[in-house]
Amino acid sequence: MDSAILRAGGGLLQRDAVQRFGFIQEHRRTWPVTAMCRVLGVSPSGFYAWRTRPPNQWTQRRGQLHQQIIEVFEKSRSTYGSPRVHAELVARGIPCCQKTVAKIMRREGLQATIRRKFQLTTDSNHTLPVAENLLDRKFAPSRPNQAWVNDIMAIPTTEGWLYLVAVLDLFSRRAVSWSLGNKRTSELVITALKMALAARRPQPGLLHHSDRGSQYACH
């Protein structure tokens, strides 16, 4: 039982008695109060005295700040770190210290998520010849290997951007082939197309549709 209490509230050993009392209050139906007090290093008499004592102004203020920090963080879609959360609170007229905001956010596991900027995959600014749009938004072919579409997708990773070229059969809406690389090159496009041709061996008359990017227009 002691080990279970430590796993659930071990981090509280570095915090003040009020926070430990709060944990005991929350879990008093799970473990005996005396056992939790012993493991967390507080006295049962102190816990019961805390329960009957009305919260002081500082405790109430800290609880309000805690909720306000969570509100600002969630409203930012988890993109704000402690400096921006602090700035937003100050802008709302809520007095607080940035170090306090950072401490509460660390304790609650509120860590900003870095959102990568949109990565443009189509380079239409070129003078290469562009084929006529024969597909003309006719996205419902009557048989396989009648119309394929090809596109480049940018995928963010922890080590940078990767680029996925996929060839899809519009009849089945499934990928015929794909290739992956760390650069948007015509070779990446050609590799995917060659793999699709080798896999399906389509009859003459296949329509291959892509955007007007330079990776497609250069061949």
Rank of each mutant, 00 (worst) to 15 (best):
L40W: 08
E187T: 07
R107C: 12
I152F: 15
Q25N: 10
K75R: 13
I94M: 11
A112L: 03
W161A: 03
V167E: 03
W178L: 02
N182E: 13
D151E: 02
N182S: 05
W58K: 14
Q60D: 11
A17S: 06
I94W: 14
D16M: 06
L128D: 15
T113N: 07
Q215E: 11
D151W: 02
V90S: 02
Q119K: 08
R212F: 05
M105H: 02
A8S: 10
Q119T: 09
F118C: 09
F47I: 03
D151G: 02
K194F: 13
G41A: 05
R77L: 11
M195R: 08
I94R: 04
A112G: 02
A49C: 10
A175T: 11
L110P: 01
Q57E: 14
S45A: 10
E108C: 07
P202H: 02
E108F: 05
T30Q: 15
R51E: 06
R143L: 02
Q64Y: 15
P44Q: 01
A4R: 11
C218G: 13
L164R: 04
F171A: 06
Q25H: 11
A131N: 14
N150M: 11
H208R: 06
P141L: 05
R184M: 15
G213V: 01
F139L: 08
L120G: 07
M153F: 15
A147R: 03
T185P: 07
G46F: 14
A140D: 05
R84K: 08
Q25A: 13
L188C: 10
Y48P: 00
S124Q: 05
M195S: 09
N56S: 14
V33S: 06
G63N: 15
M195G: 06
R77Y: 15
E187V: 09
R212A: 10
S45M: 03
R212D: 14
L188T: 09
E88Y: 04
L135N: 04
A198Q: 12
Q203D: 10
M105G: 01
I70V: 15
Q67S: 14
T158E: 14
T100H: 12
L110W: 02
E187P: 09
